[in-house]
Nucleic acid binder design. Structure first.
Lengths: 135, 135
DNA sequence: TCGTGTCTTAGAGTACGTCTAAATACTGAA
DNA sequence: TTCAGTATTTAGACGTACTCTAAGACACGA
C-alpha cells in the first residue's frame, strides 16, 4: 500500500514525504468524504509529529495535482473526494453524510444547449433521505 | 417598495423592523447572490446603526421563513438567493459569480430511479465560462 | 561534506459566523 | 396612557476553519 502510494505521488511530481504518504494512504482508502480537520484527527496518531498546516498544505497540493477533488456542498467545511472521476453527489438530510452517485445513474440533457454558458464541468447535487437497504 | 416589503414580512409572521425591511429590500432586489458580509457592507450605510449579528440573525430568519434560500456552492462562504423557486446554478470560473439557470433549461432524468436514495430536492451545479453575449 | 532548495513545524493571524448580556423597541391588556 | 412582558438589536467576546510566517529539519546534487 505505502509502496503504491509512493509511486503515485512520485508520478505526479510530489515528493513522497512520510507525512504525505500517510495522508494519502488515509484519504485514498476511505469512502467517506473527510474534511481537513478529520484527516488531521485520523492521521495524527500514526506519525510522530504532524502539524495542522502540513495537513492543509498537503491536501491542497493533492487537489492541485489532481489526486483529490475538493467539494463544497454543505455548510461549514470543505471536504475532499478521492474519487476524481465524473459522478454526482447525494447529501443525507439526517446525517449530513455525502454519498457518491454513479455518473450513469442519472441522465442530464441539454447542457450544451445553454446559450450563455460554456460548461466545463457539472454534477447533480441531491438532498434527501437514504433509503433503508432491502435485503 | 418599502411598503411592499413590510407587507411580505408581515405575511410571513416576521415583525418588520427597520433593519429587517432594509435588509430585505436589498437582498430581494439584487440579482447577485450576496454573502452575509456583503449584505452587511451594502446595508450598513443606509441605517443609523447596524450590527453584524443583526444581519446574520435576519438572514437566517428569512431562510427559515422561506423568503430566501441558502446556498453553499463555492468555497468560503454561504450565500443567499432571493429566487426560492426551483432552478439550477452556474458558477463562473473567472469571477466566481453565481448565475441562475432556469429549471427547464436543463433536463434531468431518472432521479426517481435511484434505489438507495429518496430525493427531496436536487439541482444541477455547473462550472465554466460565461459566454460573451452575441448582439 | 557542503549548500541550496524543499518541507514541516508551532503558533500567530485572519475571516466568517455564533453567542451573550444588556439596552431598546414593540405589543396588548387594563 | 401606562405598564408588563416579549421581541429585537447591539457591541464585543468567543469559536472554528483555515492561512501565514519564521525558523528549523531534511533531501539531494555537486
Amino acid at each position: 500500500m505505502k509502496r503504491d502510494v509512493e509511486a503515485v505521488l512520485r508520478g505526479l511530481g510530489i515528493q513522497p514525504t512520510i507525512q504525505r504518504v500517510i495522508i494519502a494512504c488515509y484519504v485514498l482508502s476511505t469512502d467517506e468524504h473527510p474534511s481537513a480537520e478529520q484527516v488531521f484527527a485520523k492521521v495524527k496518531g500514526r506519525v510522530p509529529v504532524l502539524s495542522r498546516a502540513t495537513v492543509y498544505n498537503t491536501l491542497n497540493t493533492f487537489v492541485e495535482k489532481g489526486l483529490l477533488r475538493e467539494l463544497v456542498l454543505a455548510e461549514g467545511n470543505v471536504v475532499f473526494d478521492p474519487n476524481v472521476g465524473k459522478h454526482h453527489h447525494f447529501i443525507d438530510d439526517d446525517s449530513g453524510r455525502i454519498h457518491d452517485v454513479p455518473w450513469d445513474a442519472v441522465k442530464v440533457a441539454n447542457i450544451d444547449g445553454l446559450s450563455d454558458f460554456e460548461v466545463r464541468d457539472y454534477q447533480v447535487v441531491m438532498r434527501g433521505r437514504r433509503r433503508k437497504r432491502r435485503r
